[in-house]
Simulated assay, not measured.
Amino acid sequence: MEAVFDGHNDVLLRLWHTAKTGGDPIAEFKNGTAAGHIDVPRARRGGLVGGLCAIYIPSGDLVLREPDEKGHYVTPMAAPLERQSSLDIAIEFTSIALQLDRAGAWRLCRTTADIRQAMEDQVFAAVLHMEGCEAIDINLDALETFYAAGLRSLGPVWSRHNLFGHGVPFAYPMDPDTGPGLTQAGVALVKACDRLGILIDLAHITEQGFWDVAKASTKPLVASHSNAHALTPVARNLTDKQLDAIRERRGLVGLNYATTMLRPDGLENADTPLSDMVRHLDHLVERVGIDCVALGSDFDGATIPQGIADAAGNQNLVAALKAAGYGEQELTKICRENWLRILAEAWHEAG
């Protein structure tokens, strides 16, 4: 079984909803559930040894706009969020992460040595990520606090605008060049993350924001859960020009399992063949090289192919990649080692 370290999931969002409705999020993750995609039993069955777990502030009832007669759709952008309520929710997410760590359900990792030790101990290796920085203040005091709690990765924006920059909508077909990029506050945020050792994630930012981060940051460019725009032209996917920049900076792009970002028609449909995942991964490898491609499932945050279904199905993708000609060394890089290299560079461990 190939061990998989995954670049993006929303399991904390699911567990937060469980807590809000009177359930026990710690027991749900530790003992297993029929809900969602990730818990300890299913992770072990599928070889999922850890991943970046997102603090994400929900945007109400945002759902994909239904396609028109041509199959096209543009979902209106989510409204900006108020900071204080966002901070409250982010603290609640972080509390769940810390409780899981204390209960031994997972291990909250702050270094790649922590990740490797957790893998050896067969404990889920969780890295705290923030997807959209609505909880962070302009003075970045909260950034320091979340860093102390274990935050080691963040995306300045989700698919909505905030104090730090502009996000792309969920739309098909659409170019990712949909508006402005980083604000002045966003540039300061990126530089502070470089200083602290927090990875910057470009997964939801506009194309202009991508280039703004490339200019402001000295670190490799990383899009944790994005696919190839040349194959599925949704606004969330990366153009070949962006992929070329990732290659030049020895960055990383994580294959997103979301069917809207895999299918040629951009539809949310679980009846999506694994060949679409292989097709995107082939394109990414051809464009950025085998050392710069990994996995970023979006488990618990998206509709994924029924051939994967949940964390227990990860090895089905590994088998499909083997059948497509990927060797053991290539699979090791894609499944975990490329992520560990990038995290080491972002966290000031490498070089």
Rank of each mutant, 00 (worst) to 15 (best):
E120A: 07
L64P: 06
N256K: 13
A294S: 12
E2M: 13
R83F: 03
K70Y: 11
A54K: 03
H283E: 07
L98V: 01
W16T: 11
T259R: 13
G150N: 03
V11P: 00
E92W: 01
I96Y: 00
E69G: 10
Q306C: 10
D282T: 03
H225K: 11
C193I: 05
A171F: 04
F146V: 00
Q117C: 03
R102G: 03
F170L: 13
L143C: 00
E131M: 08
A323M: 14
Y56V: 08
V278G: 00
Q315E: 13
W211M: 09
R336Y: 11
L262N: 10
F146T: 00
V253Q: 07
L52Q: 12
H283L: 05
S95N: 05
A126N: 02
A230I: 05
D310T: 13
A148C: 03
R42M: 06
D240K: 09
N31W: 03
I138G: 04
G307L: 14
P176T: 09
G254A: 15
P176D: 08
R65D: 15
G60N: 09
H204I: 14
A125F: 06
I55M: 04
N227M: 13
P273R: 07
R110H: 08
W211T: 08
F29G: 01
H161L: 09
G22P: 01
I89T: 13
D291T: 08
V253Y: 09
D114Q: 06
G167L: 11
V213S: 10
A34M: 10
S297H: 12
I96F: 00
I89A: 11
R287F: 05
A34Q: 08
L52M: 15
H229V: 04
I91G: 00
A223G: 12
R65K: 15
D101P: 00
I115N: 02
L87R: 08
R83L: 03
F29M: 00
A79F: 10
G32W: 01
A230P: 00
G132R: 09
G181Q: 05
R65N: 14
D240V: 12
M77N: 07
P220Q: 12
M130H: 03
L182I: 05
P25F: 01
T259F: 15
Q329C: 01
P156C: 10
M119K: 02
S224R: 12
G60V: 15
A148K: 09
R65P: 08
L255M: 14
P41H: 03
T21V: 05
L340V: 11
D240G: 07
L343W: 10
F299M: 15
A97W: 00
D265T: 12
A324T: 04
Q117L: 06
T332R: 11
V234E: 11
N31K: 05
T18G: 02
G22F: 01
A54L: 06
A245T: 08
I205Y: 07
H348V: 14
I246E: 01
A294V: 13
P58H: 10
A125V: 07
G289K: 05
E92C: 01
H204W: 15
N269K: 14
L274C: 07
A192Y: 03
T33N: 03
H225S: 13
